[in-house]
Design a protein around this nucleic acid. Structure first.
Lengths: 113, 113
DNA sequence: CAGGATCCTAAAAGATACTG
DNA sequence: CAGTATCTTTTAGGATCCTG
């Protein structure tokens, strides 16, 4: 209860309270927010992919939105574009435990109705 | 790489791919999505709170949006309204590790620029 | 106090067409 | 193929006023 309480307390200072860009929770949310974003990240976790490969894996995702996601992720330093296409950065790989936790929590929610 | 890979693989089937409500990741995202939602959840992690107490803790949050959040969280079975105000359910408490992970990941992202 | 009902604006998403 | 540009629709958020 100790470290968890500390971590939760740090989630925004208690006095002025507005969703603050400096809050670690907001930083994480910014990285995964937006429709399709977690799916794009999941695919990139497996290795570099080109634009076309990403589209092929997510057929219902329009080019426009995919472009927007990739631009945003690049601006956040989560993805880079190189010779092999798009690829997670060191920072991007930090998101893996978060995706895993999202999955685990979802499973738990589905199991406890 | 084993259990993590399994968890990531489960994040949507690979063939038809669209954000599916049945996907555990989407279930988790639904629980925490929306501006202010994580802050409301954080406050409720500490114990039951009335509508007014929640507003007092989040002064910049309008009554309308707070109402929307609480309705949504109640429909998801994450929050109940009782004699002592609003309170997390058993299911709602399942979100604690996720909030902690959001915080930790955010810290890590801020540390690795 | 604890909300509900309206109205308005802004941002996100989707469709489509186009370009290097 | 790998995007960009433009347009329309949808959704979220905020402001304000009203009510039990």
């Amino acid at each position: 209860m100790d470290s968890a309480a500390h971590e939760l307390a740090g989630h925004q200072t208690v006095t002025w309270n507005a969703p603050s860009p400096a809050c670690p929770v907001e930083v994480s949310l910014a990285a995964i927010s937006g429709r399709w974003t977690t799916l794009v990240l999941r695919d990139l976790m497996l290795g570099p992919l080109t634009f076309g490969q990403l589209r092929a894996g997510l057929p219902a995702l329009s080019a426009k939105v995919l472009t927007e996601r990739l631009v945003s992720l690049r601006h956040q330093g989560i993805v880079t574009r190189g010779a092999r296409g798009y690829e997670l950065t060191e920072r991007g790989r930090l998101l893996r435990p978060l995706l895993a936790q999202l999955y685990r929590t979802g499973e738990a929610l589905l199991a406890e109705p």
